[in-house]
Design a protein around this nucleic acid. Structure first.
Lengths: 142, 142
DNA sequence: CTAGTTGCAAAAGATTTGCAGACGT
DNA sequence: ACGTCTGCAAATCTTTTGCAACTAG
Protein backbone atom coordinates (compact mmCIF):
# COMPACT_ATOMS: atom_id res chain seq x y z
CA UNK A 1 0.00 0.00 0.00
CA UNK A 2 2.95 2.34 0.43
CA UNK A 3 4.31 2.46 -3.08
CA UNK A 4 0.89 2.88 -4.61
CA UNK A 5 0.31 5.92 -2.43
CA UNK A 6 3.51 7.47 -3.61
CA UNK A 7 2.78 6.75 -7.23
CA UNK A 8 -0.68 8.16 -6.88
CA UNK A 9 0.81 11.32 -5.44
CA UNK A 10 3.07 11.67 -8.45
CA UNK A 11 6.28 11.02 -6.55
CA UNK A 12 8.99 8.64 -7.60
CA UNK A 13 9.33 5.60 -5.41
CA UNK A 14 12.67 6.11 -3.78
CA UNK A 15 14.31 4.47 -0.83
CA UNK A 16 14.15 7.45 1.54
CA UNK A 17 10.48 8.01 0.80
CA UNK A 18 9.63 4.37 1.35
CA UNK A 19 11.60 4.21 4.56
CA UNK A 20 9.98 7.31 5.97
CA UNK A 21 6.52 6.12 5.06
CA UNK A 22 7.20 2.67 6.48
CA UNK A 23 8.52 4.10 9.68
CA UNK A 24 5.52 6.33 10.19
CA UNK A 25 3.14 3.49 9.47
CA UNK A 26 4.88 0.97 11.65
CA UNK A 27 5.34 3.22 14.64
CA UNK A 28 2.86 2.98 17.46
CA UNK A 29 3.20 6.71 18.00
CA UNK A 30 1.50 8.77 15.36
CA UNK A 31 3.30 12.08 15.70
CA UNK A 32 6.94 12.49 14.85
CA UNK A 33 9.30 15.38 14.44
CA UNK A 34 11.60 15.41 11.44
CA UNK A 35 14.46 14.75 13.80
CA UNK A 36 12.71 11.77 15.39
CA UNK A 37 12.33 10.18 12.02
CA UNK A 38 15.85 10.98 11.00
CA UNK A 39 17.36 9.53 14.17
CA UNK A 40 15.20 6.44 14.05
CA UNK A 41 16.19 5.69 10.50
CA UNK A 42 19.83 6.37 11.24
CA UNK A 43 19.74 3.90 14.09
CA UNK A 44 18.28 1.34 11.76
CA UNK A 45 21.34 1.81 9.59
CA UNK A 46 19.61 3.81 6.87
CA UNK A 47 21.79 6.56 5.49
CA UNK A 48 19.27 9.33 5.06
CA UNK A 49 20.01 13.01 5.52
CA UNK A 50 17.96 15.24 7.74
CA UNK A 51 17.43 17.62 4.85
CA UNK A 52 15.90 14.80 2.88
CA UNK A 53 13.55 13.99 5.71
CA UNK A 54 12.36 17.57 5.73
CA UNK A 55 12.05 17.65 1.96
CA UNK A 56 10.11 14.42 1.85
CA UNK A 57 7.79 15.42 4.66
CA UNK A 58 7.10 18.73 3.00
CA UNK A 59 6.30 16.97 -0.25
CA UNK A 60 4.04 14.56 1.58
CA UNK A 61 2.32 17.48 3.21
CA UNK A 62 1.71 19.17 -0.11
CA UNK A 63 0.39 15.96 -1.59
CA UNK A 64 -1.94 15.56 1.33
CA UNK A 65 -0.29 12.44 2.69
CA UNK A 66 0.64 13.91 6.05
CA UNK A 67 -0.40 16.76 8.31
CA UNK A 68 2.04 19.09 9.98
CA UNK A 69 1.29 20.38 13.45
CA UNK A 70 2.91 22.89 15.70
CA UNK A 71 1.75 22.22 19.18
CA UNK A 72 1.83 25.25 21.37
CA UNK A 73 0.47 25.61 24.83
CA UNK A 74 1.29 25.70 28.45
CA UNK A 75 4.59 24.02 28.93
CA UNK A 76 5.79 23.67 25.43
CA UNK A 77 8.75 21.33 25.31
CA UNK A 78 10.12 21.94 21.87
CA UNK A 79 9.63 24.17 18.89
CA UNK A 80 9.68 21.39 16.37
CA UNK A 81 6.87 20.70 13.99
CA UNK A 82 5.40 17.22 14.20
CA UNK A 83 4.06 15.23 11.30
CA UNK A 84 1.42 12.56 11.19
CA UNK A 85 0.22 10.24 8.49
CA UNK A 86 -3.15 11.23 7.17
CA UNK A 87 -4.49 7.72 6.91
CA UNK A 88 -7.38 8.25 9.23
CA UNK A 89 -10.04 10.87 8.80
CA UNK A 90 -9.89 14.28 10.35
CA UNK A 91 -9.44 14.53 14.07
CA UNK A 92 -8.10 16.89 16.70
CA UNK A 93 -5.55 16.38 19.45
CA UNK A 94 -5.19 16.30 23.17
CA UNK A 95 -1.65 16.67 24.44
CA UNK A 96 -0.38 15.82 27.91
CA UNK A 97 1.57 18.77 29.27
CA UNK A 98 3.58 16.53 31.54
CA UNK A 99 4.64 13.53 29.49
CA UNK A 100 3.97 14.88 26.01
CA UNK A 101 1.70 12.02 25.01
CA UNK A 102 -0.67 12.82 22.17
CA UNK A 103 -4.14 11.36 21.81
CA UNK A 104 -6.72 12.01 19.16
CA UNK A 105 -10.39 12.68 19.23
CA UNK A 106 -13.19 13.70 16.97
CA UNK A 107 -16.31 15.44 18.09
CA UNK A 108 -19.11 16.15 15.71
CA UNK A 109 -20.61 18.88 17.85
CA UNK A 110 -17.39 20.86 17.88
CA UNK A 111 -16.80 20.40 14.17
CA UNK A 112 -20.25 21.64 13.33
CA UNK A 113 -20.13 24.58 15.66
CA UNK A 114 -16.80 25.69 14.23
CA UNK A 115 -18.20 25.89 10.77
CA UNK A 116 -21.16 27.86 12.04
CA UNK A 117 -18.95 30.36 13.81
CA UNK A 118 -16.85 30.94 10.73
CA UNK A 119 -19.79 31.31 8.41
CA UNK A 120 -21.41 33.76 10.80
CA UNK A 121 -18.33 35.94 10.43
CA UNK A 122 -18.46 35.69 6.66
CA UNK A 123 -15.48 33.39 6.32
CA UNK A 124 -15.03 30.55 3.89
CA UNK A 125 -13.43 27.85 6.03
CA UNK A 126 -10.42 26.00 4.69
CA UNK A 127 -9.27 24.24 7.80
CA UNK A 128 -8.80 24.42 11.50
CA UNK A 129 -6.61 23.30 14.30
CA UNK A 130 -7.80 22.37 17.74
CA UNK A 131 -5.58 21.09 20.49
CA UNK A 132 -6.45 20.52 24.10
CA UNK A 133 -3.76 20.54 26.76
CA UNK A 134 -3.94 18.81 30.08
CA UNK A 135 -2.62 16.09 32.33
CA UNK A 136 -3.23 12.57 31.17
CA UNK A 137 -4.60 10.00 33.64
CA UNK A 138 -1.13 8.64 34.34
CA UNK A 139 0.39 12.06 34.99
CA UNK A 140 -2.48 13.29 37.13
CA UNK A 141 -1.35 11.10 40.00
CA UNK A 142 2.12 12.56 40.25
CA UNK B 1 -2.79 50.75 34.58
CA UNK B 2 0.42 49.55 33.00
CA UNK B 3 2.88 50.03 35.80
CA UNK B 4 0.57 48.51 38.34
CA UNK B 5 0.31 45.39 36.24
CA UNK B 6 4.05 45.11 36.12
CA UNK B 7 4.44 45.66 39.81
CA UNK B 8 1.77 43.10 40.53
CA UNK B 9 3.64 40.62 38.39
CA UNK B 10 6.79 41.17 40.38
CA UNK B 11 8.70 42.85 37.60
CA UNK B 12 10.64 46.04 37.85
CA UNK B 13 9.14 48.93 35.99
CA UNK B 14 11.65 49.58 33.28
CA UNK B 15 11.51 51.56 30.12
CA UNK B 16 11.54 48.62 27.67
CA UNK B 17 8.79 46.85 29.57
CA UNK B 18 6.62 49.94 29.68
CA UNK B 19 7.17 50.67 26.01
CA UNK B 20 6.30 47.17 24.96
CA UNK B 21 3.19 47.12 27.10
CA UNK B 22 2.14 50.53 25.85
CA UNK B 23 2.65 49.55 22.26
CA UNK B 24 0.58 46.41 22.61
CA UNK B 25 -2.20 48.28 24.35
CA UNK B 26 -2.28 51.16 21.93
CA UNK B 27 -2.17 49.10 18.77
CA UNK B 28 -5.40 48.38 16.97
CA UNK B 29 -4.04 44.99 16.00
CA UNK B 30 -3.92 42.56 18.85
CA UNK B 31 -1.36 40.05 17.65
CA UNK B 32 2.26 40.94 17.20
CA UNK B 33 5.45 39.05 16.54
CA UNK B 34 8.51 39.94 18.57
CA UNK B 35 9.96 41.44 15.45
CA UNK B 36 6.87 43.59 14.81
CA UNK B 37 7.19 45.08 18.24
CA UNK B 38 10.91 45.56 17.92
CA UNK B 39 10.64 47.35 14.57
CA UNK B 40 7.74 49.49 15.69
CA UNK B 41 9.59 50.67 18.75
CA UNK B 42 12.75 51.27 16.76
CA UNK B 43 10.84 53.44 14.34
CA UNK B 44 9.53 55.44 17.23
CA UNK B 45 13.10 56.12 18.20
CA UNK B 46 13.22 53.74 21.13
CA UNK B 47 16.53 51.95 21.43
CA UNK B 48 15.41 48.50 22.46
CA UNK B 49 17.12 45.29 21.46
CA UNK B 50 15.31 42.41 19.88
CA UNK B 51 16.68 40.10 22.56
CA UNK B 52 15.07 42.28 25.17
CA UNK B 53 11.75 42.15 23.40
CA UNK B 54 11.90 38.37 23.47
CA UNK B 55 12.98 38.32 27.10
CA UNK B 56 10.24 40.69 28.14
CA UNK B 57 7.56 38.86 26.20
CA UNK B 58 8.64 35.55 27.69
CA UNK B 59 8.48 37.04 31.17
CA UNK B 60 5.07 38.47 30.44
CA UNK B 61 3.95 35.09 29.24
CA UNK B 62 5.14 33.39 32.40
CA UNK B 63 3.46 36.01 34.52
CA UNK B 64 0.25 35.50 32.60
CA UNK B 65 0.17 38.96 31.04
CA UNK B 66 0.29 37.77 27.46
CA UNK B 67 -0.49 34.67 25.44
CA UNK B 68 1.86 33.25 22.85
CA UNK B 69 0.43 31.64 19.73
CA UNK B 70 1.93 29.74 16.90
CA UNK B 71 -0.50 29.80 14.07
CA UNK B 72 -0.16 26.86 11.76
CA UNK B 73 -2.43 25.93 8.95
CA UNK B 74 -2.88 25.76 5.26
CA UNK B 75 -0.68 28.43 3.77
CA UNK B 76 1.74 29.08 6.52
CA UNK B 77 3.23 32.53 6.11
CA UNK B 78 5.81 32.67 8.80
CA UNK B 79 7.19 30.62 11.63
CA UNK B 80 7.10 33.41 14.12
CA UNK B 81 5.22 33.23 17.34
CA UNK B 82 2.72 36.00 17.92
CA UNK B 83 1.89 37.51 21.26
CA UNK B 84 -1.28 39.11 22.49
CA UNK B 85 -2.17 40.98 25.64
CA UNK B 86 -4.35 38.93 27.90
CA UNK B 87 -6.61 41.80 28.88
CA UNK B 88 -9.78 40.32 27.55
CA UNK B 89 -11.19 37.00 28.61
CA UNK B 90 -10.44 33.77 26.85
CA UNK B 91 -11.20 33.50 23.18
CA UNK B 92 -10.12 31.59 20.11
CA UNK B 93 -8.96 32.78 16.70
CA UNK B 94 -9.91 32.77 13.09
CA UNK B 95 -7.10 33.54 10.68
CA UNK B 96 -7.42 34.57 7.05
CA UNK B 97 -5.19 32.39 4.94
CA UNK B 98 -4.92 35.07 2.27
CA UNK B 99 -4.30 38.34 4.06
CA UNK B 100 -3.28 37.03 7.46
CA UNK B 101 -5.89 39.02 9.34
CA UNK B 102 -6.76 37.61 12.75
CA UNK B 103 -10.18 37.84 14.34
CA UNK B 104 -11.33 36.51 17.64
CA UNK B 105 -14.38 34.64 18.74
CA UNK B 106 -15.76 32.86 21.72
CA UNK B 107 -18.31 30.11 21.58
CA UNK B 108 -19.75 28.64 24.71
CA UNK B 109 -20.86 25.45 23.01
CA UNK B 110 -17.37 24.68 21.81
CA UNK B 111 -15.78 25.52 25.14
CA UNK B 112 -18.15 23.25 26.99
CA UNK B 113 -17.79 20.38 24.58
CA UNK B 114 -14.01 20.55 24.76
CA UNK B 115 -14.04 20.12 28.49
CA UNK B 116 -16.40 17.18 28.14
CA UNK B 117 -14.21 15.47 25.61
CA UNK B 118 -11.13 15.85 27.78
CA UNK B 119 -12.83 14.64 30.92
CA UNK B 120 -14.22 11.65 29.08
CA UNK B 121 -10.65 10.66 28.28
CA UNK B 122 -9.60 11.08 31.89
CA UNK B 123 -7.63 14.28 31.37
CA UNK B 124 -7.38 17.25 33.65
CA UNK B 125 -7.60 20.18 31.25
CA UNK B 126 -5.12 23.02 31.62
CA UNK B 127 -5.73 24.85 28.40
CA UNK B 128 -6.50 24.60 24.75
CA UNK B 129 -5.86 26.23 21.46
CA UNK B 130 -8.37 26.49 18.66
CA UNK B 131 -7.76 28.28 15.42
CA UNK B 132 -9.93 28.32 12.35
CA UNK B 133 -8.43 29.07 8.96
CA UNK B 134 -10.29 30.45 5.99
CA UNK B 135 -10.79 33.32 3.64
CA UNK B 136 -12.13 36.49 5.14
CA UNK B 137 -15.01 38.30 3.44
CA UNK B 138 -12.65 40.72 1.70
CA UNK B 139 -10.39 37.99 0.36
CA UNK B 140 -13.21 35.74 -0.77
CA UNK B 141 -13.91 38.00 -3.71
CA UNK B 142 -10.42 37.83 -5.19
C1' DC C 1 19.07 9.08 -21.12
C1' DT C 2 16.92 12.72 -18.24
C1' DA C 3 14.43 14.71 -14.87
C1' DG C 4 13.64 14.09 -10.33
C1' DT C 5 16.25 13.00 -5.88
C1' DT C 6 19.69 12.75 -2.44
C1' DG C 7 23.51 13.96 1.04
C1' DC C 8 26.30 17.24 2.65
C1' DA C 9 27.51 21.61 3.94
C1' DA C 10 26.25 26.20 4.14
C1' DA C 11 22.48 29.50 4.66
C1' DA C 12 18.58 31.40 6.71
C1' DG C 13 15.18 32.57 10.15
C1' DA C 14 13.65 32.60 14.96
C1' DT C 15 14.81 32.66 19.58
C1' DT C 16 18.08 32.28 23.47
C1' DT C 17 22.19 33.20 26.16
C1' DG C 18 26.78 35.20 28.01
C1' DC C 19 28.56 39.18 29.58
C1' DA C 20 29.88 43.86 30.75
C1' DG C 21 27.72 47.96 31.53
C1' DA C 22 23.33 50.64 32.91
C1' DC C 23 19.26 51.29 35.68
C1' DG C 24 15.48 50.95 39.21
C1' DT C 25 14.48 51.07 44.06
C1' DA D 1 24.99 50.25 46.71
C1' DC D 2 22.86 45.94 44.95
C1' DG D 3 20.52 43.03 42.42
C1' DT D 4 17.89 43.33 38.31
C1' DC D 5 17.81 44.54 33.59
C1' DT D 6 19.54 45.78 28.94
C1' DG D 7 22.06 45.88 24.47
C1' DC D 8 25.06 43.63 21.71
C1' DA D 9 27.14 39.80 19.69
C1' DA D 10 27.58 35.15 19.56
C1' DA D 11 25.34 30.82 20.10
C1' DT D 12 21.43 27.51 19.35
C1' DC D 13 17.86 25.33 17.17
C1' DT D 14 14.88 24.26 13.43
C1' DT D 15 14.21 24.29 8.68
C1' DT D 16 15.61 25.46 3.92
C1' DT D 17 18.66 25.74 -0.05
C1' DG D 18 22.75 25.26 -3.42
C1' DC D 19 25.13 21.98 -5.70
C1' DA D 20 27.41 17.96 -7.60
C1' DA D 21 26.63 13.15 -7.63
C1' DC D 22 23.07 9.51 -8.13
C1' DT D 23 18.93 6.82 -9.49
C1' DA D 24 14.21 5.57 -10.93
C1' DG D 25 11.55 5.03 -14.94
Amino acid sequence: MESSDLKKAGLKITLPRMKILEFMEASDVRHHSADDIHSALREKGEDIGLATVYRVLTQFENKGLVDRHRFEGDNQVSNQSVFELKIKGHHDHIVCVSCGKVEEFYDETIELRQKEVAVAKGYEVTGHSLTLYGKCPACKKS
